[in-house]
Amino acid sequence: MASFASKRLAQERAAFKKDHPFGFYAKYAPNEDGKGQNVFKWNCGIPGRAKGPWEGATYALTMEFTEDYPSKPPKCKFAHVHGKPLFHPNVYPSGTVCLSILNEDEDWKPAITIRQILLGIQDLLDNPNAASPAQEEPYRMFSTDKTEYLRRVKKQVSEVALGAQNV
């Protein structure tokens, strides 16, 4: 019998297929042995919002769920760009996203949908949260030198647009 978590994930997948925001994608990752799919690992894509600094590319991100889902949130991790983490104050060097709704001790609620998570992360890209820095260099630049920060972001956007993200 399918677990509670996998049933909910199946529902999420169906709901996302039926209706999802423009430019996003979210699907099961293939199993490592190449046979079939892993319901607990999703490959997602988040487009940079129009007119924002991240416009011009779609950023690959994996979501990993546990059997405790939806009691516990999934772990969301951006793929590296040329071996480096996404240049964003709230992305850890590992690529993991630091966001209150993804933290079970903060704002995570079991009714939060995958669609809401993806939109939340898209919003975070344009609006970093200086109160919880996760990566030193972008944080420092974001708070001291906005022009240089935006230049570095732009550089990464064009790298991603040219296919530099190794998913």
Binding site: F4, K7, R8, Q11, E12, A15, P70, P110, A111, T113
Partner: peptide, 8 residues
């Protein structure tokens, strides 16, 4: 009606 946690 649909429960927004189990989506059933």
């Amino acid at each position: 009606k649909v429960c927004s946690i189990c989506m059933s």
